[in-house]
């Protein structure tokens, strides 16, 4: 069995949890909260792309569905955030499975384009279903979370803690998943679908499972996002968001839980540090993808097995 790779977790999350007690200003805390949000999204996409090997280019759609589900439940039915959170996760997970059903047999690069298409369709639908989604202006006035009498309000600190807690939970689940029976089957399917099938693995089912888990994580992130911002608009869920999350997963190393988090932190904080170069931001993302594929396709923490193989010969 692979060595236990989870020893980094308690310490990392402990440090992350006490960070807001250091004298950061509210802008810096907000950047950190955003990084945690992206890390959550990267973990979710990592299940789909890294574990199951499905190149998904429309992940932002599930993020959108989670955010809109939360907004809708809160504004129209008056549900508090803590109910919206699991329900949005379930809705986004279900949507991921439903949108996956028709296209799951499509392979590789075709799947990438179809998922991109679905991502765009979701965004266009959201933009045009004005009565429910507020159209291009989005939905406003979503209630902030409350714990007892304490309202999360507009300060980023409580959201940071909430996101870090969700991140810790998701990271723990992901690393367990990877070494589980299902995780092993995902890895097998990723390498050789035919052989996996002949070993009794129902690859369609396995793929849908990965989409469901990934979608649910995105839905969770979406509902926190909606509650934090208080508004949701369709342009927060552009194709560029999908590509950014994908870049984070790739930078960290496909399939690596640590990698997804580190990749998300690097790629969400660096642009803030280079604010004067903000216009170059997407250019840098593009270059990074090209260079990574060339120099280190396995990413920062990617499967060391590649290296192991080289040494073994």
């Amino acid at each position: 069995m692979k060595k236990q790779r989870r020893d980094w977790m308690p310490w990392t999350f402990l440090i992350l949890a006490v960070l807001p007690f250091f004298p950061f200003n509210s802008y810096q805390i907000d950047v950190m909260a955003n990084a945690a949000l992206y890390a959550l999204l990267a973990l979710g996409l990592n299940v789909i792309v890294g574990f199951a090997g499905l190149l998904h280019l429309g992940y932002a759609a599930f993020f959108a569905i989670g955010a809109y589900a939360c907004a809708f439940l809160n504004l129209n039915l008056g549900y508090p955030f803590w109910i919206c959170l699991p329900v949005s996760a379930a809705v986004a997970g279900a949507a991921a499975v439903l949108l996956g059903l028709p296209v799951i047999r499509v392979r590789g690069d075709y799947l990438a384009i179809v998922t991109l298409g679905f991502g765009e369709i979701v965004r266009i639908v959201v933009t045009n279903l004005e009565p429910w989604t507020g159209g291009p202006n989005g939905l406003m006035g979503i209630g902030h979370p409350m714990i007892g009498r304490f309202n999360f309000g507009v300060d980023s600190r409580p959201y940071y803690w909430l996101l870090t807690a969700l991140l810790a939970l998701t990271a723990w689940i992901c690393s367990r998943l990877r070494r589980s029976r299902i995780g092993l089957a995902w890895a097998a399917m990723k390498e050789d679908e035919l052989a996996a099938g002949c070993l009794g693995m129902d690859t369609t089912r396995l793929k849908l499972m990965a989409l469901g888990v990934g979608g649910a994580v995105a839905g969770m992130a979406g509902s926190v996002f909606a509650a934090k911002q208080g508004t949701v608009t369709p342009d927060s869920f552009d194709f560029i968001v999908s590509v950014m999350i994908l870049s984070m997963v790739i930078l960290g190393g496909l399939g690596s839980v640590r990698g997804a988090i580190v990749g998300a932190v690097i790629l969400s904080i660096t642009p803030e540090l280079l604010r004067e170069f903000a216009v170059y931001r997407m250019l840098i993302f593009g270059l990074l993808m090209i260079v990574l594929m060339r120099v280190r396709p396995q990413g920062l923490f990617g499967a060391s097995s590649l290296k192991r193989v080289l040494h073994a010969r």
């Binding site: 190149l55 590509v243 994908l246 216009v279 170059y280 250019l283 993302f285 593009g286 990074l288 993808m289």
Partner: peptide
């Protein structure tokens, strides 16, 4: 194949943003 496709997405971003600049 996946590496080439991801590279292509990267190239697309670079071209788009170069034109924008």
């Amino acid at each position: 194949k996946l590496s080439a496709l991801i590279t292509a997405i990267g190239v697309s971003f670079v071209l788009q943003n170069t034109v924008m600049l």
